[in-house]
Design a binder for these strands. Structure first.
Lengths: 299, 299
DNA sequence: GTCATTCTCTGACTCTAGTCAGAGATCAAT
DNA sequence: ATTGATCTCTGACTAGAGTCAGAGAATGAC
């Protein structure tokens, strides 16, 4: 059996960490509440919403979720009310008693973490914290899922909204982009067979996105590329870019272009690292100052 | 609610790691075998032994363990035979079929780890590995348990055996220590009210030990101090030393002495960092070259 | 040899966790 | 208004995980 050092270390960590920290989730275990119920209560406290949203987030069977919610409701911990937007759905919120219970879970979980680090010296604690923070970022980056979605889907809208918010703040300062017009155009240009739009999600939340459209036969353009601020430095941008290049290749493009703005310095650095070369202005985008292209047939 | 940064990072890590890597132990999940059974099979493969040893290691109910073993036995995966040393106990070993199944669990678990790191670039993988290895060491160090045990107990014997093996190898080179005589003396000197012997264990295995004996009223001596080679650099020695000083204080000592050998350079450095000062030879131990003392009433 | 203890096993339980197949309400599109 | 899809809930399950109280054999201390 061949194993790489990195695989061994990950496995060793998993084994010893679960053994010592216990089934980690059991930090939620408390009086009168089984693990599943407590976990659900906790998630509701973190982000209340519809039962449907909880179901997709926690990947629960609808019958199972319904029963768990019923129990929380009977205990007076959550309130269940029809969602005004769509009365098939139910909005789930914590009651004051539920909030109190949630705080208790928080305390319990924090206490557990505190006990874990307590025996360590200050210097060791600092080392552990740095190591876990680094591991956290990388694991989260590794488990991101990249999927092609319709530009009109809710996920895509949310991602593009973040894109425009950031581009507006960093380039324009006043937010004068015509967002609606851009979205309307995307709905046609960023779908097969002319293009595609992909969103990277982490735990169901969009953390990055990008689109490919066709300039002319064999020539594509990458648009709407955005990476969430808290995810910078995890190599996500480069990975997304590679993915988009694959998409462009699948669309039959031999070369991809992209434009960007001088204010987006990290992005420009990344394009250069990824093999893009500067080219002449190829469109009349008033917000673009730098233009790049990359040959997809080489390498 | 007050939280420290280190506690927050640990909690955040726990949350995201369990969420993404799933219930980690489920890496064992495979065909025709529930999680608990697979975990047990895996542990038997890692370290076969008596049912009793497995029970303490995995903290299982004896009835539950018995049933799990029965199932593994029925499936032809483990062999159960009376322990010749103590016929109440049963020795558990993997059969060839069990070993095959164990290999499969290994493969499965490695595959899982491989998938986790696969999306990362080589540099990121290296960063993740370094972070997890560091976290692993520190978490293991943080969860060590230090307990006072009788010098004659099996745990103490094992620890002292390691101590003599190492001291013999590093100082003497030939192993001419009179181990039996030393152990016989320990059995009297390292127990209350004259002294104590403590063992630090990690997952039930001894990883460090040390004893305190009485030289004269108010004056103690630290003996048999040992830290397992793979645990160096985790601050375990300093922690054990502090623990032994507390023990000495409880025994009524105002000062503790200790002797050591010039060959044990790390130990000497640690004693100095921990506030020990060099003193004149206070005994006729032929293997000792350096002598230290520390006042326990100050600070 | 006696007696308390230790180790394992069995039977009888409880409680979670989770699945599956509908039923009934609501919505979006035509 | 009809139709097909979506969302939630209920009932009826299965299986896993674990607890608890003994019973019977073996052991160690006296």
């Amino acid at each position: 059996m061949t194993t790489s050092p990195s695989v061994d270390v990950v496995r060793r960590f998993n084994r010893s960490y679960t053994q010592r920290v216990g089934v980690l989730e059991e930090s939620f275990l408390g009086p009168d509440m089984p693990l599943g119920t407590a976990r659900l209560l906790y998630e509701i406290g973190v982000a209340p919403g519809t039962a449907h949203a909880l179901r997709t987030r926690l990947e629960l069977d609808s019958g199972y979720l319904s029963r768990l919610l019923r129990r929380l409701q009977d205990d007076g911990l959550v309130s269940v009310a029809p969602d005004p937007d769509d009365r098939r759905r139910r909005r789930i919120d914590l009651t004051p008693a539920g909030r109190e219970r949630w705080d208790e879970l928080e305390r319990r979980s924090a206490e557990r973490a505190r006990r874990l680090v307590a025996p360590l010296s200050d210097r060791q604690q600092a080392r552990l914290v740095a190591a876990l923070a680094e591991a956290d970022l990388l694991v989260r980056a590794a488990t991101i899922e990249i999927a092609t979605v319709p530009p009109g889907s809710e996920l895509a809208r949310r991602a593009v909204a973040e894109y425009f918010a950031e581009v507006g703040a960093r380039i324009d300062g006043t937010g004068t982009f015509d967002v609606d017009a851009a979205l309307a155009a995307d709905a046609h240009r960023l779908v097969a067979p002319h293009g595609a739009f992909v969103v990277a999600t982490s735990a169901g939340e969009p953390v990055a996105c990008g689109g490919v459209q066709t300039l002319e036969d064999g020539s594509g353009e990458i648009k709407r590329m955005w990476v969430d601020g808290s995810w910078r430095g995890a190599g996500l941008g480069a990975r997304l870019l590679r993915h988009l290049e694959d998409v462009a290749r699948d669309l039959g493009h031999a070369v991809v272009h992209l434009d960007t703005n001088a204010a987006l310095t990290e992005a420009i650095a990344m394009y250069e690292r990824s093999g893009y070369r500067r080219v002449e202005r190829y469109n009349d985008n008033p917000h673009a100052t730098h233009f790049f292209a990359k040959d997809l047939t080489a390498g």
